[in-house]
């Protein structure tokens, strides 16, 4: 029987999720994920043709206006690296970090 998830798919999914899989973890993960996905795939046999969603199309949102929130200091208080009130990260535009 074809597997649901092969090594290539796992690597693709891991890359989407920004998780690397170490080579020594790969086999175990593939086994676990295959079991779980095989188990949940049984839903395919449930007839849902008549089901009508009762969920709202959109969560009710409040008006788009400013309300009290965290101060800049509070918001940045947990940041690993801060400079002049900004969070410091690697350059994403191309070029060197400052």
């Amino acid at each position: 029987m074809a597997t649901i998830i092969d090594r290539q798919t796992l690597e693709h999914v891991a890359s989407l999720a920004r998780l690397e899989i170490r080579p020594d973890q790969e086999a175990g993960l593939l086994t676990d994920l295959e079991h779980i996905l095989t188990y949940v795939a049984q839903l395919g046999s449930v007839d849902t043709g008549m089901v009508v969603s009762r969920r709202p199309v959109m969560t009710a949102l409040r008006e788009d206006g400013p309300t009290p929130g965290l101060t800049r200091e509070e918001g940045l208080g947990g940041a690993p690296a801060v400079r002049d009130g900004f969070v410091v990260v690697h350059n994403v535009m191309g070029g060197d970090d400052e």
Partner: peptide
């Protein structure tokens, strides 16, 4: 990690 991977997959 397992759950993130399953979630990303589905």
């Amino acid at each position: 990690k397992r759950r993130i991977l399953i979630g990303t997959f589905v």
